[in-house]
Amino acid sequence: MIDPFMALAGRLQTGIVLPLLYRLDLMQWEDIAFGWSLFAVYGLFQVLVTWSISMPLEALYPVERWPGRRVVFTDMLYTLIARVGLLPLVTFVLFYQVQVQVDGFLVDHGWIPPMLERLIPPLFGHPVLTFVAYAVILDFADYWRHRISHIIPAWYSLHALHHAQRQMTFWSDDRNHLLDDFISALWFGLIALLIGISPFQFPLLVLLLRFIESLSHANTRVSFGWLGERLIVSPRFHRAHHALPAAGRESCNYGAVFPWWDMLFGTADFSPVFGPTGDAEAPEALATGGYFAQQAAGIKSLVASFRRARKEPAGSSSAGIRG
């Protein structure tokens, strides 16, 4: 049976990527570049699936109606950059050599990075189960990454870009500052050293998880019912995290795919409310600026955050909890 995604990725690889690498004298990367081709094809498919499901939901059951959607277009750009491959490509170039050096050093000193299947041997030979286990662990790690990004003022000054959007749609999922993405990559790089990395052999499952994350940002009055809300993060659940009162340090519903961590650590909010979103204290450029204006505003906020931290005496409580 022909896998249409692989067929498309193969054509992308042989028709565009390989000739380009050949022209640039970079054919040594041809094998590794196939991973990027796959990522781009599945990313494009992710966007199409998310769009085809979320768009009707937003049209039929919107939480808010807006006179214009200009700011949403910027979020579309974020999505395309993140999902169709530019950001992963840059991240790969930045991280590959670092990863090679770190892994090489560790291997030379007796540390072959463990894998979940080695830590939990019964998982061997059960790749789907392994994938699910990875999904749960990585979601748990992401819960804490996300929660800490709200607690540390400097980090939140970057993450505020994600929260500043007042017209939150399914496109908003990838709306992040590049430095915030960079920190996330470091975070998951560390996790990869501890338990290996999530296998790429289940692109449809990855697609499903990413779909849940995108859908949770949709501007739609959808919840999954009492039980469903406690199993999978819904648009209502995640909207509470993006609600105006939840911006900043004291937020709730940090989970991306599973709400279990919020339930476990006391940060879950299941109240049936669909409030307005945004961050009232974030610079306006973060909400309504274009892509580059938002990135620049994020850096400015970060610098300001460091300055504030320097002025405040150690141990003093900060009235302004923002970065």
Partner: peptide, 16 residues
């Protein structure tokens, strides 16, 4: 310098 790695490999192997 390879002893550590080999030891680790051996340990893992024998255990699991």
């Amino acid at each position: 310098c390879y002893n550590a790695m080999e030891r680790r490999e051996r340990m893992t192997q024998h255990r699991d």
